[in-house]
Structure formats: structure tokens, C-alpha cells
Nucleic acid binder design. Structure first.
Lengths: 212, 212
DNA sequence: TGTTTAGATGAAGAAAGCTTCAGGTTAGGA
DNA sequence: TCCTAACCTGAAGCTTTCTTCATCTAAACA
């Protein structure tokens, strides 16, 4: 273990030729694969390189250290999720809050469930300090998006919209986690989704009712 | 790094004299302290021993390896939480579901907020594979307790009680996490609690309404 | 075709932290 | 008081994995 005390985490070199772009892709891909197969504890840079079909040296040409590699993989995954949720937020503008909440819940669960194992593996990575920053930033972005969505609601909502967004988000996230960490995510998926919809609709109703 | 491939994780020796009991206590205490101060990444067995005022050797007399130490600390913490929640479950028997849900939410949040930093630090530990088993077991126990509580409700609940318990639990956990991971847990505490109450009451209502 | 730049390689260096163990100290009973 | 068992000590060994770098190959370019 020879981690430097403070190493930058920007990529060391940016791929310009097709050859290197492929290498970087393979490395990132291998990282996720190994996260799934052996877990973050046993994932080593050498292993990743081997699975990617390149040498360790190549890996270190594009990722300054192991941490940066994991972060890159996480960033990629998070990006996809955020994009998906954002899409729904846009699509639901102007709809009744109850429907918004429902759509949000369904969309969020659906994205995560597209590849539960991957979501879970990358989630584990995020618990390493720097990973949290990445997910935190993503969550913040999504929250803003939700606030924007709520602002477009036809109903009058007296509850602070940021608060409401936070609650919706954390509630959904709670159920999502439960689902991902259960032994059989796909089996429980539908039932849990149905219940989650009940939860968020109930809350949305409460937020509207309060304003009377 | 010289972790053995497969080491048992039972304590190596059980303290019998007061002297050693104190040592074990100090070690566990120091572990949590360091988790708070330096984080799990920089926590080393030598550091723990130093802070506890004993030598590393002593530490290894009672904990077969670092992992076991962290697990022990986590177990202790989880035990307290579970006990607290169980207490509430017992106290709420026979009450209306809405009130049950509310009490559960409030209690859960309150326990975790007694020492938010500690909760957070130990939560980080649990994300290491073996830690998950511990929290999972605790969660399972609590879930059973909740199911028992729900069974005592005066209302007729057609929703599967295990499912309902799961949903309540994950919803509450979601908000709890959001709270613990926010920068200012105490500042947000009251507001979030109020909202969470709305959420769970709404859900409880929905579960009752369904049965009509 | 010659030159330059991008890309790839992998053995070896280095650091770091876990864990052991041989030997010393303290407590309690006979 | 003496003996035994419990307890404590901490320097040193051991492993492991990260990371580097001197060297080689392939591509682009003139």
C-alpha cells in the first residue's frame, strides 16, 4: 500500500486515439464487473487491468489512483440515474402533485431496478468518503429538479417545497435501499412499488390538505 | 497488511478480572472515538490501543482482528437502538395504527439523533460486508417487533402486516439517513420529524382505508 | 520513409498496517 | 508469602496491494 498523502484525482491523461478510448472503456467496464464478482474489498488495480485486457501501467495512465478509478465508475452510474429521473421531472410538469409523486417514485425505483446488482455494488463504493460527495452532489441536483417540478403543480402547496422535495426523496430512497438490499429485489419489486406509491400519494395529499 | 484468509471472529479471550473488563471497555470506547475523529479509513488497531491506553497486544487478546473489533462496536450500538425501539413497540400495543406509526417514527428518529455523529460513524462501519449482517439481523428483529405491534391494532388491516412493517421501516430509515447525512442534523430534526409523521400517518390511513 | 507523439507493458519498489509472540507484570488464592 | 493464572507489552515480521518508470510498440504526420 503506497498511497500518496495527497494525490490529485483528475485523469492523468485524456485519451485521444481510438485505441486508448477503448482501453478506458474496458477498464471502467472491468471495474464494475469486478465490483459485482469479487466485491470492493477484493478489487485490486491489477485485477481490474487483467480483466480489462490491459496492463496495470495503462490503467494508471488514465486514472491517477485506485480511488479515482472507483469514483469514475460511480460517476458514470450516477449520471445515468440522474438523467433518467430528470427526464421524468420534465415530463410531469403541470400534473397534479399526487401524480407527480407517484411518477417520481415509480421512475426512481424502476431505474435502480434495471440492474439491481450493479446499483448495489456501486452503492457500496459510494460509502467510501469521496464517493459520498459524488452521490450527495447528484442528490442535490435531483432535489432541485424535484423542487422545480413541484413549483409547476396546479395545487396550492403551503409546505416549503424544498422540504417537501427532501421528504419525497428520502422516503423513496429508503424504500429503494430496502429493495436493493433484500435477497430478491425482483420478487419484491412490484409489491413494494405499490406500497411506495401509497406512501408518497398520502404525503402529497397531506401537503395539499394542509393548505386549506 | 497480513490478514489471514479465514480467521474466526469470536473473542479470543473473555475478561474475568475487573482489570481486563476495563480494558475491553476502553478499547471499544476508543474505537468509537476514533471513528468519530479520524474516520474508518484512518482507524488503525495501534491507534485504537494507544487511545484506549493499552498496548496493541492487549487489544488482540480480546479481539481476534480489526474487523471483529469494529463489529463489536457496531453490535453494541445496534443493541441500544433496538432495545429502545422495542420498548416503544411494547408501549404502543393496542393503540390506533396511526398513533403507532407516529410513535415509531418519532422514537426511531429520536434514538438516532441522541448522538447523530456516532450513529453516522457506526453506520459507515456497517457498509463493510460483515457489518451489514449485523444491521440486517437487527432490522429483521425490529421488523418482527413491528409486525407484532401492528397485529395488536384495533383497526382491521388487510394489507400484509409484514409488508406494512417493511414499508414503515424503510420509509422511516430513509428519512433518518437523510437527516444523519445532512450537514446540520439537529437543525433539521424537528421539521423533518413533523414531515415524517405526516408520511407514516398517511400510509397508515391508506392501509386502513383499503380494508373498507 | 523517418520522426514524433500516443499508448502500452509489467517487474520491482515502497509503504503501511495487521498480527504475533516471547517475555514481563499484577492479582488472588493457598 | 509464594504460586499460578490472568493480563499486559511493543518491537518486529509478514503480507498485500498500490504505484512507478524505464522501455517498447503503434499510430500519425511530414
Amino acid at each position: 500500500m503506497a498511497q500518496r498523502t495527497a494525490t490529485r484525482s483528475e485523469p492523468r491523461k485524456t485519451p485521444v486515439q481510438a485505441r486508448s478510448t477503448a482501453s478506458v472503456g474496458a477498464i471502467l467496464e472491468a471495474t464494475v464487473q469486478l465490483l459485482l464478482r469479487v466485491g470492493k474489498e477484493k478489487l485490486t488495480t491489477t485485477l481490474v487491468a487483467k480483466r480489462a485486457g490491459v496492463s496495470v501501467g495503462t490503467l494508471y495512465q488514465y486514472f491517477p489512483n485506485k480511488s479515482a478509478l472507483l469514483q469514475a465508475a460511480l460517476r458514470l452510474h450516477v449520471k445515468e440515474i440522474v438523467a433518467e429521473v430528470d427526464k421524468v421531472c420534465v415530463a410531469q410538469r403541470g400534473q397534479p402533485v399526487e401524480q407527480m409523486a407517484e411518477a417520481l417514485a415509480v421512475a426512481f425505483l424502476a431505474v435502480k431496478m434495471r440492474d439491481p446488482r450493479k446499483s448495489r455494488a456501486l452503492y457500496a463504493v459510494s460509502s467510501d468518503v469521496d464517493g459520498m460527495k459524488i452521490t450527495a452532489a447528484a442528490e442535490a441536483r435531483v432535489k432541485q429538479e424535484i423542487v422545480g417540478l413541484l413549483e409547476s403543480a396546479p395545487e396550492l402547496l403551503t409546505t416549503d417545497l424544498v422540504l417537501m422535495a427532501t421528504v419525497l426523496q428520502s422516503t423513496i430512497a429508503g424504500v429503494k435501499r430496502q429493495l436493493l438490499e433484500s435477497d430478491m429485489p425482483e420478487a419484491q419489486f412490484e409489491v413494494m412499488q405499490r406500497e411506495l406509491v401509497l406512501v408518497v400519494r398520502g404525503y402529497a395529499q397531506a401537503c395539499v390538505a394542509q393548505s386549506r
